[in-house]
Design a protein around this nucleic acid. Structure first.
Length: 598
DNA sequence: GAGTTTGAAACT
DNA sequence: CAGTTTCAAACTC
């Protein structure tokens, strides 16, 4: 490779006056195209992330990658780095890698809109051989940049290599991605998107002082992640729940999962109460800096965090009973742990995946029943009209019978579910037999059909039968002779289903309120306790032993929401129970029998 | 577009 | 490791 021109050969000393001078002159012609923010290696480290690290530059290992982009020339990049310009890291920032706003990235899209090279630096004094240069930092050659005296190219490979070496010498991780996902990583579907945003964090953390970490000067902000315990920023506002931060996204949150999540949480909170974030006040927004050093709780233990359920650790503990501690994990291990907190719904531990499944199942069945009975009724009505003259009396009787049947059918359905597993009851056979007697009709609204289809996938797959719901249900649209009638049936059907569903929601609300009450009192007591302990300087110790000693936290929560027993029952009950007023979980002992409070 | 501000990187 | 300087991007006017 062109061992670089002599001029560039001295990679170590970045800039010479001469260079500077020339740079100055040259710069006049530069078109400081708006550049994209420092890339922080966001790109492409998804895949390469760990492996990448342009480790040994001097070696032949440099990956030879054909630059994909719009590189006119079949250029081959011998970058220590990984992947050339790539879309955002899936693994790390799945959330919102690219919100239009957060990635304005002027350079990505050249004027002509052609996806261009991701980085186009404007370096003048570094010769693009220092990490100041985005291209260099990303392990790619400068191409189409506006840099001056650039040595980050094939022609100066020698100098470049030296520079890489030197850089690695200083910092072996220099070329590694700066953003890493939390060790906890994504757990289950529940916390997808929005939360990942939070889980990812800057390895080194930022050191912002004046930007509040809400400007692109901040690497965390730029990467669209929240500041973490790794950061040493001052007056940070880039944390979950920060009003400033939210305000920032206000204008353009359509694609911001974090915002959406917050909005969703807020909605939930509003619906069931107000303790999502403890009414705490706008306690100082600065959560880091000082606070951090003392441990998350030192300053304002209760207020700021109690209500914010940490999303970090125990998010999805497999065993609900033992780890369903949604309440603030003050500090986590060693008082640190993921310092970012996300609001966690009060219902987080109440609603389990299986519950949703059951709910769906129940609703499907209800819908089915409703459709059937309605259809039957309609049939009867038609028949009635048909034979009205001769069987007017009989028909009237039948109608009555149908009405009764309808209610019976529903009752039967509810009974079934109240005593057993819905899934079992919903076997295709069941529906078939039912359908058998109820002639053809089984009209279902499109939505219901879709729902049922989904249900079948997961619940009836095994038991699929030739006459399964699927076959039956999915074709129903044509089973009703009269299209218009179907519309009515749909309406009726939906009405019934929605009513049932409302019951469920009400139940959830009730649950949430209960939990809210618990959390509120807990927060209060915890706050008091914390204050006391802080004054005694025992805060840290406490936090570290949180799980054992956090009787309040753990205990209370569990108490308030004993395992999941109730959930499924609740769902079933709610659906079945006619109207709604959901009795508070009667059987739930205030103590849940789990752990004695205190 | 020029000048200022900012914070990471580099250096001492 | 802390403080200072250099650098280039972000931001402001």
């Amino acid at each position: 490779m062109g061992e670089g021109d002599g001029a560039d050969s001295a990679p170590k000393k970045p800039q010479s006056d001469a260079a500077t001078a020339s740079a100055t002159t040259a710069s006049t012609s530069d078109v400081p195209a708006k550049k994209l923010a420092r890339q922080l290696d966001f790109t492409g480290f998804g895949a390469a992330s760990g492996s990448v690290a342009l480790p040994e530059p001097p070696k032949p290992q440099l990956q030879t990658v054909t630059v994909p982009q719009s590189q006119p020339k079949p250029q081959v990049v011998g970058v220590p780095v990984p992947v050339p310009p790539q879309p955002p890291i899936p693994s790390v920032r799945p959330v919102k890698p690219e919100s239009p706003k957060s990635r304005p990235r002027p350079n990505v899209e050249a004027k002509d809109g052609t996806p261009k090279k991701q980085k186009q630096c404007n370096c003048k004094h570094s010769r693009c051989l220092k990490l100041y240069c985005e291209c260099f930092a990303s392990g790619i050659y400068c191409d189409g940049c506006n840099c001056v005296n650039c040595c980050n190219n094939v022609e100066n490979e020698g100098a470049r290599r030296d520079a890489v070496e030197a850089t690695l010498e200083r910092n072996p991780n220099a070329f590694r991605p700066k953003i890493a996902s939390s060790p906890h990583g994504p757990r289950d579907s529940r916390e997808e998107a929005g939360e990942l945003l939070i889980l990812a964090k800057h390895n080194k953390g930022c050191h912002c002082k004046k930007s509040g970490c809400l400007k692109k000067y901040c690497e965390c902000f730029q990467a669209n992640i929240l500041c973490s315990e790794n950061c040493k920023c001052i007056d940070c506002k880039n944390f979950e729940g920060s009003e400033e931060r939210q305000a920032l996204f206000h204008g353009d949150h359509s694609n911001n999962m974090a915002y959406l999540q917050q909005a969703a949480n807020a909605a939930i909170t509003g619906a069931i109460g107000s303790s999502g974030y403890i009414s705490s006040p706008p306690v100082s927004k600065k959560r880091k800096g000082q606070e951090l050093f003392f441990g998350p709780t030192a300053k304002d233990p209760s207020a700021h965090r109690i209500g914010q359920f940490p999303q970090a650790n125990h998010l999805r503990p497999p065993a609900p009973s033992s780890s369903s501690v949604p309440v603030a994990r003050l500090g986590g291990t060693a008082g640190l742990g993921p310092s970012k907190f996300t609001y966690r719904s009060l219902l987080a531990d109440i609603i389990q995946p299986q519950d949703l499944k059951e709910l769906c199942s129940v609703l499907v069945v209800v819908a089915e029943e409703a459709a059937k009975t309605l259809a039957d009724r309609r049939n009867a009505a038609e028949k009635q009209a048909e034979y009205q003259t001769e069987t007017s009396i009989a028909s009237a009787t039948e109608d009555r019978l149908q009405s009764q049947k309808e209610s019976d059918a529903q009752k039967a359905a509810t009974d079934d579910f109240s005593t057993a597993n819905q899934a079992d009851k919903m076997s295709p056979e069941d529906s078939n037999s039912d359908g058998a007697d109820g002639p053809k009709v089984r009209p279902m609204s499109p939505g219901t059909l879709a729902l049922m289809c989904d249900e079948q996938d997961t619940m009836f797959m095994a038991a699929a039968s030739p006459n399964g719901l699927m076959g039956d249900g999915c074709n129903t649209s044509s089973q009703l002779p009269n299209g218009q009638g179907m519309t009515e049936v749909y309406a009726e059907q939906e009405k019934i289903v929605l009513t049932k569903f409302r019951g469920c929601l009400n139940m959830l609300i009730t649950r949430g309120e209960l939990k809210e009450a618990e959390c509120s009192s807990l927060a209060r007591s915890e706050a008091a306790a914390q204050r006391e302990q802080v004054s005694n300087g025992t805060t840290n110790a406490r936090m570290e032993t949180g799980s054992q000693q956090g009787p309040i936290t753990n205990g209370v929560v569990r108490t308030a929401f004993p395992p999941t027993v109730k959930t499924s029952q609740m769902v079933t009950a709610a659906v079945l129970a006619p109207s709604t007023v959901l009795p508070k979980p009667p059987s739930v002992p205030e103590n849940g029998g789990n752990k004695p409070k205190a």
